[in-house]
Amino acid sequence: MSNLFGRTRPIDQARVVPTGETIGSYTSYLDAQKAVDYLADEKFPVQHVSIVGNDLKMVERVTGKLSYPRVALSGAMTGAWFGLFIGVMLSFFDGGGQAGGPYLNVLTAVLMGAAFWMLFAIIGYAAQRGKRDFTSTNQVLASSYDVIVTPDVAMDARRLLAQLPMSSTAPRPFQGQGQNHSHQPPVQTPPRPEGWHDPYGSQQPTVEPAPETDGSETARPGQAPLSGPRRGEFPDLPDGRPQYGIRIDTPPAPAEDDSPAGN
């Protein structure tokens, strides 16, 4: 494959789908073309860039219904343009001996072209016998267009496209992608300080021998040792005041009279 302004690529390379890293994915071909044009404006080596269309579909858009008058009019207009071209060409070789000769030749060519092309169009439409009574245009579209570059210049292309305010569905690389991270030491979590207690963490059951106590509650086997006040008990503050609420002194109960009645 070759063009007028570029180099000829090898035949084997033109027969395979380009491979590399996708630096941009767009739903419109014009957006992909704009991205490549921006790279070219930024002096990027665009010979490493390719545009690949995914999920190609052939779309035929119906433009109207055919009929004999429409076919005749379309054929006459096409023939008139063709006859005008032929008449102008013949007017250059006219000797000009007759007054109005060149204009007469052009008019004759236009009329003859319109008549013949109208006749051919009507005959062709009649030969179809109504199997295609509409006009349409064909177009090949893709669901998305990927801008692919070779891996050696992919980072430079991404850096340039990041400055272009266009939406792209291509995944963005994380910072530092493309570098070798195999020699970096693993990140270690700092150790927790001693005495630090996580109230939301899971506690591993511990088994400790029961110390000698004077009858107070101890931890049962398989449970963490009990420390601090029991549930429902709130010790007083160091100055003697209650920790929560106020203290109400309960009046002493009246003493019962054990003397016999009537004494």
Rank of each mutant, 00 (worst) to 15 (best):
P252C: 05
R192A: 12
S167I: 15
G228I: 10
F120N: 10
A76T: 11
D94M: 04
T8S: 13
Q179I: 03
L161R: 00
I246S: 11
G100D: 07
S227N: 11
G232K: 02
A14Q: 12
L84R: 05
R15K: 13
H183E: 09
L160Y: 10
A80P: 02
T8W: 11
E208K: 15
G96D: 12
K34F: 02
G6I: 10
L73W: 10
T108I: 14
A170M: 05
G245K: 00
K43H: 07
D236P: 08
P45S: 05
P260G: 06
V207G: 12
T169L: 07
Q98W: 06
K57V: 13
V46P: 10
D257I: 00
N263G: 01
Q204Y: 12
Q163I: 08
N138K: 11
R15L: 12
W117H: 14
T213P: 03
A72N: 07
Y29I: 12
G240V: 02
H183P: 05
I246A: 07
I123G: 10
S67C: 04
K131S: 15
G53W: 00
V110W: 01
R9C: 02
S136Y: 13
V59D: 08
G130N: 15
P235C: 02
G100H: 08
G113N: 03
A210H: 08
R9I: 04
